[in-house]
Design a protein around this nucleic acid. Structure first.
Lengths: 99, 99
DNA sequence: ATGATTATTGCACTTAGTGCTACAATACGT
DNA sequence: ACGTATTGTAGCACTAAGTGCAATAATCAT
């Protein structure tokens, strides 16, 4: 998370404590403060290789087609927003969380 | 997971123990045995409402656009495979895992 | 070597994802 | 109750993601 956003988030947290801002607003802000993950083609390939799985198996975990994974890794297509988020979850929590 | 697949998975596990099948193959099979998640438009809306967040906030968590979430909930568009997997993760682990 | 698994390339096609606008509904404070 | 702010709906147009298939190439173990 960028430093600026982090500080802003702190501010909103303080404002919420004092009652200037609702819990809803705080939660909204937290969600918006979550940085959009980005993965280069190479990064995706590395991520998969760290788990020692083939493209086919990786695709199965992701619930995507082999063709899609290949195009991600070869830079022909970029993962959608949700797919990027999923990749970040995998990176931090492992493939197991998908099961 | 369907009963048949579950049994087949057991068999492959046994085969692997005896050495007829490699660990790779077992892992491949496990991945393939993971059932593809499905969410109806209503199910997605319910999922979001369970977390008491607006479409905008939900979209931020998913790293998707508001427009996309709306179309999912109104049945105009269906989530991609990876998006479905992400929804299943959220359902089982909560929104927190995305941060 | 050779056979099996895994990855690449290219083509064609479908549909998800997004942005924007104007409008409706609902909730909220005063 | 009233006006206001938040939240969700509806329609449009467009871009690019996702998919399948088939043929070729690279990798790797035996």
């Amino acid at each position: 998370m960028s430093r600026l956003i982090k500080e802003a988030l702190e501010t909103v947290r303080d404002l919420q404590e004092v009652g200037v801002v609702s819990k809803q607003t705080l939660r909204d802000f937290e969600a918006l403060a979550v940085p959009p993950p980005t993965y280069s083609a190479a990064a995706i390939r590395h991520l998969r290789e760290n788990f020692h799985v083939s493209q086919a198996v990786f695709a199965a975990y992701l619930n995507a087609s082999v063709s899609t994974v290949q195009k991600w890794e070869n830079g022909e297509k970029k993962p959608s927003g949700a797919a990027l988020r999923l990749l970040s979850v995998i990176e931090r929590k492992g493939l197991e969380v998908l099961v």
